[in-house]
Amino acid sequence: MELYLRNCYKTVEAAAKKAAASNLNADKEHCGTSTKKNPFPEVGASHLLDLPLGVKLPVIPGSNSVFYTTNISEKLYQPSYGFNLTDPYCRLLETSYKSLHDPHLKTYYKRKDILRRLRKNGYITTNNKVICSLKELNKYRHYLSSLKVDFERNYIKEQESTRTTPVQERHLDTVAKEMDKIEHTAEKRSALRMKEEESRHRDHIRRKLHLRRQIEEEWKAKELSLLTKIGEEVKREARIEERRQKFREETNRKKFLRRQRKRITLRLTRKHTKHTKHTKHTKDTKDT
Rank of each mutant, 00 (worst) to 15 (best):
L209Y: 05
P52K: 14
F40V: 12
T228A: 05
E242R: 07
T107K: 10
L57Y: 09
N121W: 09
L100H: 00
Y123A: 13
L268Y: 02
R189A: 07
T228K: 13
S96R: 11
N121M: 14
E232R: 15
P88Y: 10
T228Q: 14
R91M: 12
L76N: 07
T165Q: 07
F83Y: 13
Y89R: 11
K157I: 10
T162D: 15
L93G: 01
D284L: 06
Q245L: 04
K208F: 06
E198I: 05
Y123F: 14
A191T: 09
L100E: 03
K229M: 10
A16G: 07
L53W: 01
E29A: 04
F247K: 05
K120W: 08
L134N: 07
H171A: 15
K129S: 04
F256C: 01
A26T: 00
K262H: 11
S146D: 05
M1K: 05
R267V: 05
K220E: 09
K36Y: 01
E2R: 12
K283T: 03
S99R: 05
L192N: 05
N64H: 07
V55D: 13
K177W: 10
Y81A: 13
A186C: 08
L49E: 14
E2Q: 14
Q214A: 15
T164Q: 15
T288R: 04
N121E: 15
R153Y: 15
I156N: 10
P39A: 10
K229G: 15
R248D: 00
R267M: 05
H281W: 04
T33Y: 02
L192P: 01
E198D: 12
R163G: 03
R207W: 02
E197H: 09
Y89G: 03
G62L: 03
E152M: 04
R117I: 04
E136K: 07
R202D: 02
L144Y: 03
F256S: 02
R239Y: 06
L48W: 00
D284M: 03
Q245S: 09
N23V: 08
H278L: 12
I264F: 07
N64S: 05
D113W: 01
H272E: 10
P88D: 06
I264L: 08
I205R: 02
